[in-house]
């Protein structure tokens, strides 16, 4: 699999349909890299033309802005928008709900206007178009799967159906957690919490969420955000259920099931 950068595409005089915005977690975090690879594998198989920014991509500024550091956010936004506008980027796909939210909702008033698509949305439309073909007797057939809503997809952007619709084609048993959709419980990572110790309390947020996940009896917790993925994986470990349950991104579930 060869992943092109925008610079390489530009040099060869072509333009991809999509910019794949990988995000910091997707680029550097070892666990999230697997999600990135799974998703680019799907893109490759389906034959979607895309490229990444590579070294030219920088943090969207989401954690800085939500921690309160507007200066740093504006610096990152300025830099990213300059780069993307220079390439004439029109459509962006990303596997990170935080990048999705920032580029889609916060970059336009700073001069960055793009059509931004989260990978679960793209997967849903690929399925609808019949472009994703699954193996016979897929790996997840009949398994119990519970989807954990990401705050930045769900409440922040009203995307509740796409991830669930994608999961439906796995022919698995989908179970909802006690708090789901607009009532979904946060994994604890948002608002730059990912990058600091939690404040003092009676329990950790990811442990509370892991308890709900365990209560469903699911074998797989499906996530759609690299940060939720980390938080849920840690929570499940804390409950010593890592041998019975796996936390997998929707892109990984589809990539593994594709023919």
């Amino acid at each position: 699999m060869k992943v092109n950068t925008m610079a390489e595409m530009m040099a060869s005089g072509t333009m991809p349909e999509y910019l794949f915005w990988v995000g910091c977690a997707g680029s550097f975090d070892q666990r999230a890299q697997k999600i990135t690879k799974a998703f680019s594998l799907i893109l490759d198989k389906v034959g979607i033309s895309y490229a990444i920014l590579g070294k030219e991509e920088a943090c969207t500024g989401d954690p800085a802005r939500r921690a309160g550091n507007e200066f740093l956010f504006q610096m990152m936004a300025y830099q990213n928008i300059q780069v993307m506008n220079a390439y004439g980027v029109k459509k962006i796909i990303t596997t990170c709900p935080h990048c999705f939210n920032t580029i889609k909702n916060e970059y336009p008033e700073l001069g960055g206007n793009y059509e931004v698509i989260h990978h679960t949305m793209l997967l849903q439309s690929l399925i609808n178009e019949g472009k994703i073909v699954l193996k016979e007797g897929g790996a997840f057939k009949g398994k119990k799967i519970s989807y954990h809503d990401s705050c930045y997809l769900g409440r922040a952007n009203n995307i509740y159906e796409a991830p669930r619709k994608v999961l439906e084609i796995l022919d698995a048993e989908l179970i909802e957690m006690k708090r789901c959709r607009s009532n979904g419980l946060c994994c604890g990572a948002g608002g730059a919490q990912m990058f600091k110790e939690e404040e003092a309390g009676t329990t950790r947020i990811n442990i509370e969420r892991a308890e709900e996940a365990v209560a469903t009896g699911a074998q797989i917790i499906a996530s759609a955000c690299p940060f939720c993925n980390t938080m849920m994986t840690d929570g499940i470990k804390n409950k010593e259920k890592e041998n019975e349950m796996a936390v997998l991104d929707i892109a990984e579930l589809i990539a593994e099931s594709m023919a």
Partner: peptide
């Protein structure tokens, strides 16, 4: 302590 999850607004 806020995770900016928007649960309160919702």
């Amino acid at each position: 302590a806020c995770t900016t999850c928007n649960a309160c607004v919702e």
